[in-house]
Amino acid sequence: HNGKLCKLKGIAPLQLGKCNITGWLLGNPECDSLLPARSWSYIVETPNSENGACYPGDLIDYEELREQLSSVSSLERFEIFPKESSWPNHTFNGVTVSCSHRGKSSFYRNLLWLTKKGDSYPKLTNSYVNNKGKEVLVLWGVHHPSSSDEQQSLYSNGNAYVSVASSNYNRRFTPEIAARPKVRDQHGRMNYYWTLLEPGDTIIFEATGNLIAPWYAFALSRGFESGIITSNASMHECNTKCQTPQGAINSNLPFQNIHPVTIGECPKYVRSTKLRMVTGLRNIPSIQYRGLFGAIAGFIEGGWTGMIDGWYGYHHQNEQGSGYAADQKSTQNAINGITNKVNSVIEKMNTQFTAVGKEFNNLEKRMENLNKKVDDGFLDIWTYNAELLVLLENERTLDFHDLNVKNLYEKVKSQLKNNAKEIGNGCFEFYHKCDNECMESVRNGTYDYPKYSEESKLNREKIDGVKLESMGVYQILAIYSTVASSLVLLVSLGAISFWMCSNGSLQCRICI
């Protein structure tokens, strides 16, 4: 991952900044910058967002509201009850120091605090018919004063009620008058409520006091790749198909172990950190130390980045220098085999997901714990399936590479015959000098055995068991695999060879 928040398929997220979902939807004055928000790819909250409900109280069923919003990608904020005409018999300019803005008392931008007009609070009834052709999110509140005197001074009615009804919602609220500790300079409380109004449905408000009335509502448009994440990451000019709280993932790998919460087309989250597919040879310690064997393909974004291909070729060293050249036929066979294998694994496992966190309130801790156990169970199954699949494929890959290298080895052996000696570690020792032209003939299969047989015969008789390297004779190393990324691999195959001279070296080696 890149540690950044990015656009998702070209669409920017909605960053709530210092506000949370509650503050944004109710219209906390400190969240005025969010009022123009219309569309987004996903919503970003920060872990310690401080601006929620400015007048103390709870947004009821907040967790369910977050779940609903996680599939919303755009909205239209509109005046559901026009301020100047909807409440002619009531005062609608209630403000509070708890919702101060720029040093002055204020109130929510989407709600109206209705109080008595003169000395009376006549029963009010108002309704709205949803003609938007889509779901409408309606929010309101109920004020709970701290004393009967406060109730009387604001609403005149000691036994007030609030009723809200639609086809799918029907509740009646009565204020709970009680002494409470002071929070944000208030002994009173406000509880906030919401409902989704279906197209064509009607919502009716009736009250004799204590109503925090809707002013603006939201017509919602769903987008199934949307979601809500909690993150401290910063926004950058970048684009992605998959976003996590820790950063964007741009990967076609089937798995990731970065974060379980994802938005967009994302690899499946697994616990494993070692889900690797081999593309090189079986481990040979001396070669492995030099980083030549054991190439791997990573299938977990965050564990290993991208696929690494092994390729086969020849390396030689003689009086004229040293050089490398790919054996294109065996390399292409290996590439085709690995590509098919990788595609097979991805096809089997690479279903892209959006995974969002589930919200539970403080009273639902047991449910949250149960949900976590269920999620953990599914996660263990996914991890096991992934590891088992790759384990089985790896064994076949190792066998496949062994065969490829063996074929190259036999190709060289059949040409050199007794003009060189096998020394048991995949290397041959020449009994004759071999210049670049000679080396090329070994690589392309045109090695002239009779041409060098007499010199080889004489050297075999002279050496008589002495280690060949100390006599200045020449080696050919018969097994060799270097490691390159897919891009470098293609470039390498396009070149005939490249040279690395070893000044004054008397050794001649050709490596497979």
Rank of each mutant, 00 (worst) to 15 (best):
E395F: 04
Y447M: 12
Q507C: 08
K433E: 11
Y409T: 03
L398M: 12
M349G: 01
E265C: 04
S505V: 12
G445V: 06
M471Q: 15
H259M: 01
K268I: 13
H432P: 09
K457D: 10
L477K: 11
F353T: 08
D464W: 00
N283W: 09
V345S: 07
V356R: 14
S441W: 00
E359Y: 11
T383D: 09
R276N: 05
W304A: 00
R271N: 08
L292C: 01
I338N: 05
N419S: 07
I296D: 06
I423D: 08
K268H: 06
T262C: 12
N239L: 02
K411P: 07
L389N: 05
Q320Y: 14
E422C: 06
C238K: 06
W304P: 04
K241S: 14
T262V: 13
I463K: 15
V356K: 02
S414A: 14
K241A: 15
L253S: 15
L468W: 07
N252K: 11
L487N: 06
F353M: 15
I308W: 04
V356T: 08
T383N: 09
N340R: 14
E265Y: 01
V390Q: 12
S231V: 11
H315K: 06
C242S: 04
P254D: 03
L493Y: 14
F255Y: 09
I263A: 01
A297I: 05
G310V: 02
I512Q: 06
N369W: 07
N252C: 03
D375M: 11
Q328M: 14
F299T: 03
A420T: 03
V412K: 06
K274I: 05
C511R: 02
N336Y: 05
Y447T: 07
L363N: 08
L506A: 06
G357H: 02
R366Q: 09
S486W: 06
V442W: 04
G321E: 05
V345Q: 04
S505T: 15
F353P: 00
G337T: 10
E319M: 10
E368Q: 15
Y312R: 00
T273L: 13
A295P: 03
N459T: 10
E469F: 07
N350A: 14
N407M: 11
A386F: 01
K341W: 07
G294L: 12
D435L: 06
C266V: 10
Y384S: 14
A297H: 10
S330C: 08
N407E: 09
T305R: 01
I512P: 01
G377F: 05
G321K: 03
G445M: 14
E347Q: 15
L275R: 01
W311S: 03
N362S: 13
M500A: 14
P254H: 02
F430R: 07
K421L: 13
S330M: 02
G337S: 15
R509N: 02
N503C: 04
C242A: 01
G313P: 05
I284G: 07
N436F: 10
Y480C: 11
E364R: 13
P285H: 15
R460Y: 12
N361A: 14
A355S: 11
L253G: 00
Y447H: 11
N369T: 15
Y312K: 06
Y449G: 13
G303P: 06
I496K: 00
I381T: 02
N333D: 14
I338C: 11
L370R: 02
G298R: 08
S470C: 01
G504R: 12
L363R: 15
N362W: 14
Y431L: 15
K411Y: 08
H432I: 05
K462A: 11
L389Q: 05
L468Y: 03
G302E: 09
Y409D: 09
V270C: 01
E469S: 13
N343T: 12
I476N: 10
S441P: 03
L416Q: 09
E319W: 01
W382V: 06
Q288G: 09
P285D: 08
F378R: 06
H401N: 01
M307I: 07
I510H: 03
K451I: 09
F299G: 07
L493K: 00
H401Q: 10
V390E: 08
K348C: 06
L468H: 02
N369Y: 07
D375T: 15
Y449C: 06
H432Q: 09
M367S: 02
N232M: 04
A325F: 11
L253Q: 08
Y312N: 05
V483H: 12
F360L: 06
I510M: 12
V374G: 03
L490S: 15
A326D: 01
D376T: 06
K241Q: 11
L398G: 08
K433A: 14
G357V: 08
Q243D: 08
Q256Y: 07
L489P: 04
E410R: 04
E364Y: 05
Y269M: 12
D399L: 01
G472Y: 09
N239C: 07
K372P: 03
D448H: 14
K406M: 12
F255L: 07
N436Q: 15
I476Y: 11
A478Y: 03
N369M: 12
N436S: 02
V405L: 15
S286F: 01
E395G: 06
I479D: 09
I296M: 15
T244K: 04
K358P: 06
Y449L: 13
E319G: 11
I510N: 03
Y452S: 05
T383C: 09
G323T: 11
M277P: 01
S497I: 00
I249V: 13
G465M: 14
V412S: 11
I335D: 04
P450Y: 06
K373A: 07
F299I: 09
K467W: 00
P450G: 09
V405T: 03
Q246G: 08
D402T: 06
N252I: 11
F430E: 09
L281W: 10
A334K: 06
Q317E: 14
N361S: 15
N436P: 12
Y269E: 04
C434D: 01
F498M: 05
N318V: 12
Y312F: 09
K411N: 11
N250D: 13
F378I: 09
C511S: 04
Q320R: 03
D309Y: 09
I263K: 06
G302M: 06
N436V: 13
I287P: 05
A248I: 05
